[in-house]
Amino acid sequence: PVYLSVKADNSMFIGNDPVTDETMITALNALTEGKKDTTIFFRADKTVDYETLMKVMDTLHQAGYLKIGLVG
Rank of each mutant, 00 (worst) to 15 (best):
P1I: 09
P1A: 10
P1R: 07
V2F: 04
V2T: 03
V2D: 01
Y3M: 08
Y3F: 11
Y3K: 03
L4N: 00
L4C: 03
S5E: 12
S5D: 12
V6K: 02
V6P: 01
V6C: 03
K7H: 14
K7S: 08
K7L: 14
A8S: 12
A8W: 11
A8E: 08
D9F: 07
N10I: 04
M12P: 01
M12T: 03
M12R: 03
M12H: 02
F13D: 02
F13R: 05
I14L: 14
G15Y: 04
G15Q: 07
G15L: 04
N16M: 09
N16L: 09
N16Q: 09
D17M: 15
P18Q: 12
P18M: 11
P18C: 07
P18H: 08
P18G: 05
V19D: 01
T20M: 03
T20C: 04
D21Y: 15
E22H: 08
E22N: 07
E22M: 09
E22D: 11
T23F: 05
T23D: 10
M24V: 08
I25Y: 02
I25D: 01
I25S: 02
T26Q: 13
T26K: 11
A27H: 14
A27V: 15
L28E: 00
N29Q: 08
N29H: 09
A30G: 07
A30T: 10
A30F: 09
A30D: 08
L31N: 03
L31V: 11
T32F: 06
E33K: 14
E33D: 13
E33I: 06
G34M: 05
K35T: 04
K35L: 06
K35I: 07
K36M: 08
K36S: 05
K36L: 10
K36D: 03
D37T: 07
D37Q: 08
D37I: 03
D37P: 03
T38Q: 09
T38F: 08
T39D: 07
I40G: 01
I40A: 00
F41V: 12
F42N: 01
F42K: 00
F42Y: 04
F42S: 00
F42A: 05
F42P: 01
R43V: 15
R43K: 12
R43S: 15
A44M: 10
A44T: 09
D45R: 02
K46V: 10
K46T: 11
T47D: 15
T47C: 14
V48R: 02
D49M: 10
Y50A: 11
Y50I: 13
Y50S: 09
E51Y: 10
E51T: 10
T52N: 06
T52I: 14
L53D: 00
L53F: 10
M54Q: 13
M54D: 05
K55D: 04
K55M: 08
K55L: 08
V56C: 04
M57R: 06
M57P: 00
D58N: 14
T59P: 01
L60Y: 00
L60F: 03
H61E: 08
Q62T: 10
A63H: 09
G64S: 02
G64L: 02
G64W: 01
G64P: 00
Y65R: 00
Y65H: 01
L66D: 10
K67A: 07
I68K: 02
I68C: 05
G69I: 15
G69L: 15
G69Q: 15
G69M: 15
L70I: 13
V71C: 14
V71D: 09
G72H: 11
